[in-house]
Nucleic acid binder design. Structure first.
Lengths: 150, 150
DNA sequence: CTCACTGAGTTCGATCGTCGAACCCAATGA
DNA sequence: TCATTGGGTTCGACGATCGAACTCAGTGAG
């Protein structure tokens, strides 16, 4: 049986999951944010099979998160660079980073990978707030719905 | 070949992806945040196969995002309820929601599912900021590293 | 007492996705 | 001429996902 698709679901979460809901795609994106661009850079950094990497990059290019760009004529060499849409995805990874580092580490085994402000060098702790009010988003204070009811 | 596991990777993103990096787990969590608790509630809402739902719920219970609780003695009935760890996952879904609604919708076809503040009824737009400074997180201003270098 | 029904799963076989290894090809450099 | 490198594609084995069918305990109707 084929995988159930969510790409036309009415829910933005479902559509997003359809796109990145596998084990490699988010990691490939993470590497893109780290500045990797070339096929072999990705492949060596992640040690995933070439066929899977090819598929993931193609999907990301297809969906407009990456562009495949010729950066050398002879011999022809390509690189995969984040688009605006791709860069906009960063908060999702940052939210995962935050949750993972808060909840998936045993005491005493600090996560070796952290985020720092490039300028100040100080650690950055991503947190989700409401853009309008600036207040942190608490599950119990948010309602999901098709439209405002009252 | 077995799927490559990331659950002991040094990167919080990788570990998080190992846990929720499939198509159903994030959607099951979304439904949990919507207040679903019983097996059949999930199954009917998502129309996924029972076997997959069983596996997903078991994994989420295993990892401590949900608890399986007896809420009725005779006949014995169970429900799956979010734990603190599970509730803490909300920002990841909210970030996906935001990105999906910003980037995966054509003009003119508004996402029918939105987020509202329970009290004010006003729409909520999740945004990621640095907890320390309150500044929005921009990719180019954040560096990933094992430890601070200077 | 029997039958149908419900909640909560497990089992089954088919199909799809993932994996590493091997192969391919063009351009370059020794 | 031959090996190497970048950037893939092809292949076959195996693991994951699917819907459908089955299970089992309790319950309520007749």
């Amino acid at each position: 049986m084929r995988r159930t698709r969510f790409d036309d679901a009415p829910c933005p979460i479902a559509r997003t999951v359809d796109l990145i809901g596998d084990w490699w795609t988010p990691i490939v994106l993470r590497e893109a944010f780290r500045g990797r661009r070339r096929f072999d850079e990705f492949q060596q950094a992640l040690s995933l099979s070439r066929s899977v990497l090819t598929q993931r990059l193609a999907r990301l290019v297809d969906e407009g998160l990456l562009v495949r760009r010729l950066y050398e004529e002879r011999p022809p060499r390509h690189e995969y660079v984040l688009t605006e849409k791709g860069r906009a995805f960063y908060p999702v990874l940052a939210a995962m980073w935050r949750w993972g580092s808060d909840w998936l580490w045993e005491e005493g085994s600090e996560p070796p990978v952290e985020l720092y402000d490039r300028e100040s060098g100080r650690p950055v702790r991503p947190r989700l707030v409401d853009e309008n009010t600036g207040k942190p988003i608490d599950v119990r204070e948010v309602r999901v719905g098709a439209r405002r009811e009252a």
